[in-house]
Amino acid sequence: MVESGFSEDHLDVLKELMNIAVGNATASIADLLQTFGTMHIPQIMISDMVGLDAYIKNAIPEEKQYYITKQLFGGIFSGEFLFVICENSAINLGRHLYDVNQNPTDEDIHDAVIELTNILSATIISRLTEELNTKVQFFVPSTERIVGNSIIGQDELLNYHKIIIISTEMVFEDQQIGGKIFILTKDEMIKKLKALIDQKLEELYA
């Protein structure tokens, strides 16, 4: 904590802002996708690559197939947005969005997963950055289907990065759709994030 300059106060702010952002996302999804969902209280931790790998592996059972969508976002606060959804959930999502009773095609599923990711990232990250009084730019997301929970390349584990992991879970109980969200930011970006939070705190104490 000392290394990254992130104090309990900073974490508290981030957590509170994430609560707001996630609440916002749930409302948007209800509006845009006609689905009522719940989102878990975000967890926030500071770790390194090995810790991130362990955290993801712990959060995602390895025996299933997943669709993983990765989207980069840029700006003063930048990083990577990850949305992980298991195959069954993804199929249900495809069914819901494409209004089909039979099994949706692989293309429908891909598209549906990207669409949900668009909404999640746009609402969560936009809201978070809005609260931090800064702007964000989103980049084209990409989805791939993988077996198991090896999201991080094993070679990457050798790179040392200080990483902030923000994670939460999203569930649409009626449609049996659930997914996990990870927002990752590292190294220099953490300093910038800290500066933004400091500004926010100053504003509040003023």
Binding site: S28, D31, L32, H110, D111, I114, E115, N118, I119, A122, T123, S126, F138, V140, P141
Partner: peptide
């Protein structure tokens, strides 16, 4: 609604 770009393939 989100006042944000959406992407798709």
């Amino acid at each position: 609604r989100l006042n944000s770009p959406t992407f798709y393939d």
